[in-house]
């Protein structure tokens, strides 16, 4: 199994840390992983994206042009990455702020109201884990217990008290993902 994922949105949405937790979860189930951020003179409010690969085999290129899954969290990223999905791939997006919804017919499309759910949960920082839950519902490539272990490994000890809230957010995401197109 090899899963090539792009996660893209605004800086501050937790794009990079979501990728990191996903990668750590892969390590917890003995997979090879890579995490390659877009790198440049970035700023808050600018776009941020990260390529995450989980594989049972040695990973070739950490830099990719075609993806199995795109997790898209703003309009700029939709414009940039919708075309980069492989045919039959999976696009998961948050419709918040999206003015042009995905148009391709040869991919699976799911949506999740991550920003709205995070507001509902009373903590905007749960946003990325809600999205993560939505992703794991449509692509269960890592087990929730391994995500829990990944959180334990990737968060400093002083933040471990936040893990139950993160798991709750993941559950929220699992429950609220909607199918737009399923091939």
């Amino acid at each position: 199994m090899t899963e090539e994922i792009i996660i893209a949105g605004f800086g501050g949405q937790g794009v990079l840390s979501m990728g990191k937790i996903l990668a750590y979860s892969g390590i917890m189930q003995d997979q090879e992983v890579s995490w390659m951020p877009s790198y440049g003179p970035e700023m808050r409010g600018g776009t941020a994206n990260v390529t995450v690969i989980l594989s049972d085999n040695r990973i070739s290129s950490p830099v990719l042009k075609k993806f199995d899954t795109a997790i898209i969290l703003n309009q700029q990223s939709m414009d940039k990455f919708e075309a980069d999905l492989k045919p039959g791939g999976t696009l998961l997006y948050d419709p918040n702020g999206i003015t042009r919804h995905p148009e391709r017919k040869d991919i699976n499309i799911f949506k999740i109201p991550g920003a709205a759910l995070a507001t509902e949960m009373g903590n905007p920082k749960t946003f990325n884990m809600i999205i993560m839950g939505g992703f794991l519902k449509v692509k269960p490539i890592v087990k929730i217990e391994n995500v829990q272990k990944g959180l334990e490994k990737s968060l400093p000890e002083r933040h471990h008290k936040l893990i139950p809230l993160n798991i709750e957010a993941i559950q929220k995401g699992i429950e609220n993902v909607e199918t737009v197109i399923s091939l």
């Binding site: 090879e32 995490w35 390659m36 951020p37 950490p62 830099v63």
Partner: peptide, 10 residues
């Protein structure tokens, strides 16, 4: 280079 320097792997 910046690819290997900035990326995370196991």
């Amino acid at each position: 280079d910046g690819v290997i320097g900035q990326m995370m792997e196991k």
